[in-house]
């Protein structure tokens, strides 16, 4: 079947098969390989994208079901040149080791931060709880996102 998606701001039309996941279409058809395939079961968050304004695990989305939707991937968040403040914060704070989980974290953090002017640490941690990192802990990742939030002018409230 043919579907239309507003992908990172521009409408695209392409042919898919009924069984294709959105993740497959993004990575293997459109070569947008920033979105990663981790567990394939919606448990690790590496494939997180923003679908019609909300984060989803694209490995569990059948592409045929989102005809006409708007999708933002990591390629739509990261600027053409340089880095997004969240990416800058992660780099500066050692929040990236192997980097496989990083795009998913950036997408979750971006969605969370772009919807509010201020937040508590508990809210931020819960917003990132759907993304797993297997290299290390989450301390540096959280610190990196906080640094990014500060660059973006967001305020951190006490819990």
């Amino acid at each position: 079947m043919k579907i239309r998606l507003k992908l990172n701001g521009s409408w695209r039309e392409f042919e898919i098969s009924n069984d294709d996941t959105l993740l497959h279409v993004l990575r293997d058809e459109l070569r947008l390989t920033g979105t990663k395939r981790g567990c394939g079961n919606g448990e690790c968050g590496a494939c997180t994208v923003i679908l019609d304004g909300e984060t989803v695990t694209s490995c569990l989305v059948l592409a045929a079901s989102v005809d006409g939707s708007s999708i933002t991937t990591i390629e739509g968040i990261s600027p053409q040149r340089g880095l997004h403040p969240i990416q800058e914060g992660l780099v500066a704070n050692g929040g990236v080791q192997c980097g496989f989980c990083t795009p998913g974290f950036v997408v979750s953090a971006y969605d969370f931060l772009s919807k509010r002017e201020s937040f508590t640490m508990d809210e931020l941690k819960r917003a990132l709880s759907g993304n797993l990192c297997r290299c290390t802990g989450y301390k540096k990742i959280v610190e990196g996102v906080v640094a990014g939030a500060e660059i973006m002018g967001k305020e951190i409230e006490n819990d």
Partner: peptide
């Protein structure tokens, strides 16, 4: 339930 992504879906 699950995670933010799962709760959105």
């Amino acid at each position: 339930i699950g995670s933010p992504q799962i709760r959105n879906m």
